[in-house]
Each structure stands twice: as structure tokens, then as C-alpha cells.
Amino acid sequence: MKEILVVGGAGYIGSHMCKYLHKNGMTPVVLDNLSYGHRQAVQWGPFYEGEMADTALLKKIFSEHRIEAVMHFAAFCYVGESMQLPLKYYQNNIAATLTLLTEMVEHNILNFIFSSTCATYGEPEQLPLLEDFPQNPINPYGRSKLMMEQILGDLDHAHNLKSVCLRYFNAAGADSEGEIGEDHDPETHLIPLVLQTALGQREKLTIFGSDYPTQDGTCIRDYIHIEDLAQAHHLSLLHLLAGGASKKYNLGNGNGYSILDVIKTAEAVTKKTIPHSYAERRPGDPAALVGSAELIIRELGWKPQFNSLESILQTAWNWHSNHPDGFKDA
């Protein structure tokens, strides 16, 4: 079984990726410091607790396992926090990642799947976003990801390190079998916040901004189911393992939903009223982000299974309603 190092494999996206790799005959080797991840979410392969900037630990992992590729899910990813703590983001998302990449080159591990983001595009001039559109990020989070994309281009040229950069839109939903789901502390992602409100764990949902230039004044985002995301990563991995060239792909559904759309759909799924109120806009939030994934569909044969907001919310509701305290209930 091919061994794949999954950095951040105890987190939301990383843990779903590990399950998907295991289902497809691969062994995920997890490295995670558990600052945001959960030990209970590591179920499908060996686990190393520690930092991706720990050179000695990386050497140990690379000597104990025949790692054929590395998947990186260990970035900090909160736009608002990045505006307040840019050094935290540059230190982890760039400096620590460079340590990981240095050890990969040292050990001749030259296949890298990188979680990038639609935040590299900044305020889009037109929608849906295509991969060759200008990248002008408006927050440190997006800038840190764009810098890493550029660095990976240099490493391909200098060291033949091949990478696939996957520009996520909004990862959402949960494992369709109900084993794992989304559990952050503190929680800042819209869909878990909406569902926690439906469960009565929050008095109401706060919507940041009601005066965006959208149909109802709230931000519009493109949501992609976590298992569809994992499928795209697996196809990207197979592409690299077969000797494929470095690539950059958008991962989205091509459909934009406003915050009020999400609330309305969640009320239909949960059969509960979701109280909400408005606050000032958050700095660094674009009005709308919607992406075209036609390139990865055409080139790698990606076939998303959860194309509706309702189906995404249903899997998330199954997890949250059965695990109201997250992994403490798992």
C-alpha cells in the first residue's frame, strides 16, 4: 500500500482525506500538532504528533516510512484572524511549510498536493473565477497561499518537485457515513455556526455585513462537499504518481449562495428556525467568490457527487445532530 504523508491529517479536511485514501488502498501517515485537529479523527493510519517545522521529526517519519507524496492541510485559514495576526500566518503558512519542503527535497520525495484557496484571487473582476484570472489577494491568508504557489513553481524548476495546487472555495458538509465531521474551536465557518444555532447551542447567528452588492446584501460563496474535495485530491495525487506535470485547479461547484440562502436551506433541512442578526462587515471579506472547476473536470475526470447546497447541509446536519459536542461524542 502506498504511504502518503498527510500533514494536518487530524483536522477537518485532512481527516476526511485520510479516510478517502484508506478506502482507495493507500496508507495515510498523519502528522498533526492537534492545535486544531482531533486525535479521535485519526483512524486510518499511523499518527505522529508534532510540528511540520520539526526537522528531526520529519527525518524520523521519512526514514520510518516509504513516503511517496505529501499532502498539506496544516495551514492557518481564518481570513479575519490573518488581518489581525499576519505574522502568525506567514510563520506557519510559509516558514514552517518551507521546512517541510526542504526535508522533502532532501529525501527525494517530489510529489506535493497543496491546499491553496480562492482567496488568492482577491476581489474578482468577473465570475465564475477561472485559474488564469489575476491573483490579487486582499488579506494575509490569501497572500500566504499565493506566495506558496509561487515558491512551488520555483521548486519545480530547480528540484523537479511536482505539485498540484488546489484552490478551494468553501469546504462544507461531513462524511456521508457519519464517522467524522467538522469540529473547530472556536468555530468560525458559516455552516457549522448555522447548524449550532439550529441545535440551540447559539442564541442566534451573526451575519457580518448586510450591504454587499449582492441580491440580498450578504456575501456569496461557493460550497464544495468535503468528500468531493477528497476525490479531487486523490485524482491529483494519482496524476502526480503517474509522472504528471505540476497543475493548478479550482475546486468549487460553480454555484454561489448568499448567507441568507444558506440559512433558508438549513431551515428546510433541519426543520428549525435559525435566528440571526447583522453586524458590521469584516475586513478582508470579498462580496462574492464563485469558481469554475471545469479544468479539473476536463483534465482529471473529477465528478462531484454533492452538487446541491441541500445535500451538503444534510450530511453536515447528520454529523452535528448526532455529535452536538463534536468529537467529544465520537
Rank of each mutant, 00 (worst) to 15 (best):
K2L: 08
V6G: 06
V7R: 11
V7D: 07
A10W: 04
A10H: 10
G14P: 13
Y20N: 06
Y20V: 08
L21Y: 15
N24A: 01
G25H: 13
G25S: 09
T27L: 13
T27A: 03
V29F: 10
V30R: 06
D32F: 04
N33A: 03
S35G: 13
G37N: 08
H38P: 05
R39L: 10
Q40P: 02
E51F: 09
M52H: 11
A56P: 00
E64S: 10
H65E: 05
I67V: 06
I67T: 04
A69D: 00
F73N: 08
A74M: 09
Y89T: 04
Y89F: 14
Y90V: 11
I94P: 06
A95H: 15
A96I: 00
A96P: 03
L98G: 00
E103Q: 15
N108W: 08
N111V: 04
F114G: 02
S115E: 06
S115W: 05
T117Q: 06
C118Q: 01
C118V: 05
C118N: 02
Y121G: 03
G122Q: 00
P124G: 04
P124A: 04
P124N: 04
L127D: 10
L129I: 14
E131K: 00
F133A: 13
F133W: 05
P134S: 02
I138M: 11
I138G: 05
S144T: 13
K145T: 12
K145N: 12
M147H: 14
E149H: 04
L152T: 01
L155P: 06
L155Q: 06
H157E: 15
K162R: 15
Y168N: 10
G173P: 00
D175Y: 03
D183L: 00
E187P: 13
T188F: 11
H189A: 13
P192L: 04
L195Y: 10
T197P: 07
R202E: 12
F208W: 13
S210M: 08
P213R: 07
Q215G: 09
D222C: 09
Y223K: 11
I226F: 11
L235D: 01
G243L: 05
N250L: 00
G252C: 06
L260D: 11
D261W: 10
I263S: 05
I263N: 07
A266F: 09
V269C: 02
K271N: 02
K272N: 10
I274H: 11
S277M: 02
R281K: 15
P286L: 10
P286N: 11
S292D: 10
I297L: 04
I297P: 00
L300H: 08
K303I: 07
N307D: 03
S311P: 02
I312V: 07
Q314M: 04
W317Y: 12
H323P: 01
D325R: 14
